[in-house]
Design a protein around this nucleic acid. Structure first.
Length: 461
RNA sequence: GGCUGCGUGGCAGAGUGGUCAUGCAGCGGACUGCAACUCCGUUAACGCCGGUUCGAUUCCGACCGCAGCCUCCA
């Protein structure tokens, strides 16, 4: 029975979908003005695995991940670059897709964009004004009146008094209350703007998600996810907006993933201590990055370091080594495996405990390696089982050879093969000095040899 | 200052009131011409101080340390 830690109640709860057999999932996506960094990669991978596991568990999942394609940073960046906003956002949407695809992240069912949701956004603001939750200020902005919403603070565990005492925002004259947040921003000269009942302007960040989630999934849906930093104020404000406008609970389960850190500090754009996905993928295979992300529980902090990536690489190499040169039994269904299936399921059912699930897979790998010596059939079965588990976590999605040989071109491969041939000739003649010399040469090229059962295979170090 | 959360062996990282995590690395052994791979075995941990308990790393409390949010952020 699947249990999910709900940030709203701060407890693990049994997951019960609103509609039996169906899951409606919304995740806050990127603001597209720059390349994805490892923190973004974590969100994508985490909710990719959530989606994969829900589907593997038999749910019909509708997965929505929005794109914020209009905001202050986008406008500022476009101006800096001297390019149009549309050209900037289209470019970075393409870059994001490239990174996500590289990491094997399954595309969401829909990726709504803020700029294409204006009618819904404006209609929702109108509703909020009608119901008394929002007001138009003299300067053309529209604000949400926080004091009108009883549950304000319930997600982030705060109340309005606490928020007031911790107030660090410069007071904005147009607001009735410093805690009120903007739903619609009046356009400044030279800024892109949309027509609205309150004059030309553009939406505030929070209202976009409330409008898009309702449009794509309805007023009440199952799971809403995102990074921990969105809990306040973004998700708190979403609740105020959605529940204010619709008069019903908007989300049953809130899921927040932990941060990626560097040297025990949050990786973020503002601190400038981030690595882009592009940079990391130049050095490590995408599945190594994915494996690294899955070694810790999604809610824990994840410290990024070369050492951790190297460990992930070594571990994944062992899996691919086990899968190499063996024909995996097709269509093995892990749920049917009586030994490992229940252990894997128990791990994943426990709030998506991927670290524990990986330990089950390590046992399967060992079983595979042992079976190899005795029974090909058994070994093939375990290989198939490993593949089946891998499909849930998005691992082992490439051929073992492709992973282990890692982007060798044909010329290089031919050269390696020739050297191996030469070494094996020397070995046959018991010319160990020569054989070792050739092996050293290969090692220097970053090639590791493995002599198995009369056959020499190689891989990249 | 307020509110969260965390502190596990050399590193990464699960978990549990009494018995094995797992991975990376290390050590010993088997295999190998030697290595690598693989297998077998193995060392080692639960921030600090109290309390509850027959027994606590696990529950409770204080303390120390770290991180996050309270402003844009995945």
């Amino acid at each position: 029975m699947l249990q999910i830690h709900n940030s709203l109640t701060k407890k693990k709860e049994v997951f019960t979908p609103i509609e039996p057999g169906k899951v409606k999932l919304y995740v806050c996506g990127m603001t597209v003005y720059d390349l994805c960094h490892v923190g973004h990669a974590r969100v994508m991978v985490v909710f990719d695995v959530v989606t994969r596991y829900l589907r593997a568990s038999g749910y019909d999942v509708t997965y929505i991940r929005n794109i914020t394609d209009i905001d202050d940073k986008i406008i500022a960046r476009a101006n800096e670059n001297g390019e149009s906003i549309q050209s900037l956002t289209e470019r970075f949407i393409a870059e994001m897709h490239q990174d996500a695809d590289a990491m094997g992240v399954v595309r969401p069912d829909q990726e709504p964009k803020a700029t294409e949701s204006m009618a819904d956004i404006i209609a929702m603001i109108e509703t909020l004004i009608e119901k008394g939750f929002a007001y138009a200020a003299d300067n053309g902005d529209v604000y949400y009146d926080v004091s009108e919403f009883d549950g304000y603070g319930k997600l982030s565990g705060r109340n309005i008094e606490e928020l007031r005492s911790g107030e660090r925002v410069a007071v904005n004259e147009a607001k009735n209350d410093p805690l009120d947040f903007v739903l619609w921003k009046a356009a400044k000269p030279e800024e892109p703007a949309w027509d609205s009942p309150w004059g030309n302007g553009r939406p505030g960040w929070h209202i976009e998600c409330s409008a898009m989630s309702a449009t794509c999934l309805g007023e009440h849906f199952d799971i809403h996810g995102g990074g921990q930093d969105l809990q306040f104020p973004h998700h708190e404000n979403e609740i105020a907006q959605s529940e204010g406008a619709h008069g019903c609970q908007s989300v049953n389960y809130w899921m927040h993933n932990g941060f990626v850190r560097i040297d025990d500090e949050k990786m973020s754009k503002s601190l400038g201590n981030f690595f882009t996905v592009r940079e990391v993928l130049a050095q490590y295979s995408p599945e190594v990055v994915r494996y690294f992300i899955l070694t810790s529980h999604y809610r824990s902090p994840l410290n990024y370091s070369d050492e951790s990536l190297e460990q992930a690489k070594s571990a994944l190499t062992r899996y691919y080594t086990a899968l190499r040169d063996i024909e995996a039994t097709q269509d093995v269904v892990w749920q049917n495996d009586e030994e490992f299936g229940p252990r894997f399921q128990e791990a994943m059912d426990d709030d998506f405990n991927t670290a524990l699930a990986l330990s089950v897979m390590a046992d399967v790998r060992q079983a595979l390696n042992k079976a190899r010596e005795q029974s090909n059939e058994q070994a093939s079965y375990f290989a198939g089982l490993l593949q089946s588990f891998g499909d849930v976590l998005g691992l082992f999605q490439q051929a073992a050879e492709a992973f282990l040989l890692g982007g060798q071109d044909d010329d290089e491969s031919a050269k390696v093969e020739a050297l191996i041939q030469a070494r094996n000739t020397a070995r046959a003649e018991k010319d160990w000095a020569k054989a070792d010399q050739v092996r050293d040469e290969l090692n220097a090229m970053g090639i590791v040899l493995e002599d198995n059962a009369g056959k020499t295979t190689w891989r990249k170090a």
